[in-house]
Design a protein around this nucleic acid. Structure first.
Lengths: 229, 229
DNA sequence: AATTTAAATGTCGAAATTACACTTATTGTT
DNA sequence: AACAATAAGTGTAATTTCGACATTTAAATT
């Protein structure tokens, strides 16, 4: 019918760039690639791609992530749209940034190699093309904010994890240290962790209990606006 | 140089839609217009427009807001990009939603009339086109979140305001009631309000002191991560 | 049995939050 | 001049949360 109405307006290339976070037990990392095409070929970059007419932007983001990592159905959230006129020297490109949280070990090593991808410590980022550094900075801020109210930290940890691992994750996200006793008390008082009988024995004689995140318990509390940190 | 690289990708119409909030002393309102063109001509809608190649998306949002309200340099923030394939029956349009906070009395009445614009209580929204209702809901959630950490509520009030007006605003934003004594104590303890000698006398014999937001004091505290509510 | 390792746990003071009701300043009325 | 009316302004006590801080415990190794 009225596609006619819109025909005279400008059209834009729409890139989708993904900030992919991972946690290796010590530090928070982002997955970067060596860009395989011009402009800026060979430079460090976020994984990205162009959106197509027949997919939603969320689908485009999922596709790009799947492309790089082989992973599907992972935690992903729209971050921000970057639309400065000159942000990409190759042309007027609007970029939609998404951030994703994955478990490092789940990703497909072959695929990562194909893209020359590398996990990089967030505190030691190399030079990046365009406004990608700004994107990562914003993503990190958003992650901090989100983690304080929502149980998404678990997306970065193995299914079962120790309290020490969980604390290390929060410490990496906030770049700070927490008191172990206060941290444990607080996190357990939320009532969304379930302790398993199994222990992790690699790092001590005594062994540390594994916990899992109990999504059902969380759902029941969610409406209340639970605070994490 | 390498505009060539990008040429084969799909291009998109990029709409910018604005959720414009106002506060009339009692309730939180959004500025809606009766859409003046097809499709869905005559239906209630957010103010919007298409982005152009020679402007950034932030500039586009500012232009659209200026168009409707006659206001410049007002508080505005990118909200979210809406990109479902079928969200607009008139064609594939990606919509970037922005939200703005304005003082109702500052807006240009003539311009509003030209666009058939109307302030509508957020709790009594009419049917809206496309995904505009969802946009408003999201904007309101974001406003609540933002107001709790940032001094943006003042953008919705006159330059000088009473504590009662400020409380009414917060109550409207959160759709709840606060205890007057606790609210006053907390808000004053932040140390970012300056009391004037002048009183508002319309609503009581005693009169209520006017306050102004002290941006300088705030800037000094900002780094600390001040909490509002 | 003794040693080693890291895990697990409790208390106390400070600060923040909540619940709750009376007094005060001013104007208009008798 | 006293009084009534109106909404503004203010304090306290109980509770909860937060932050700092050190010892005991479980299991494996020697």
């Amino acid at each position: 019918m009225s596609r006619i109405e819109y025909k005279n307006y400008d059209r834009f290339l729409l890139a989708v760039d993904c900030i992919i976070f991972g946690f290796d037990g010590n530090s928070l990392k982002a997955l970067l690639i060596k860009r395989g095409f011009e402009p800026e070929k060979g430079k460090w970059s976020l994984m990205g791609g162009f959106a197509a007419q027949d997919e939603s932007i969320d689908q485009a983001a999922g596709r790009i992530l799947l492309n790089l990592t082989g992973l599907d159905q992972i935690y992903m959230e729209q971050l921000h749209c970057f639309g400065e006129v000159d942000r990409d020297p190759g042309g007027r490109v609007i970029s939609l940034a998404y951030f994703a949280l994955i478990k490092i070990d789940d990703s497909d090593g072959e695929k990562l190699e194909q893209h020359n991808a590398k996990w990089v410590d967030l505190r030691k980022l190399p030079a990046l093309i365009f406004d990608h550094r700004q994107m990562i900075r914003l993503a990190k801020e958003r992650l901090q904010q989100k983690v304080s109210n929502h149980p998404i930290g678990f997306e970065l940890l193995p299914h079962k994890f120790t309290l020490q691992q969980l604390q290390a994750l929060y410490e990496a996200v906030y770049e700070t240290n927490f008191d172990k006793r206060n941290f444990t008390r607080k996190i357990l008082s939320l009532g969304v962790l379930q302790r398993l009988d199994e222990k992790e024995k690699a790092s001590s004689k005594k062994g540390a209990f594994y916990y899992v995140f109990d999504k059902k318990k969380y759902k029941r509390l969610e409406s209340e606006g639970i605070k994490f940190i």
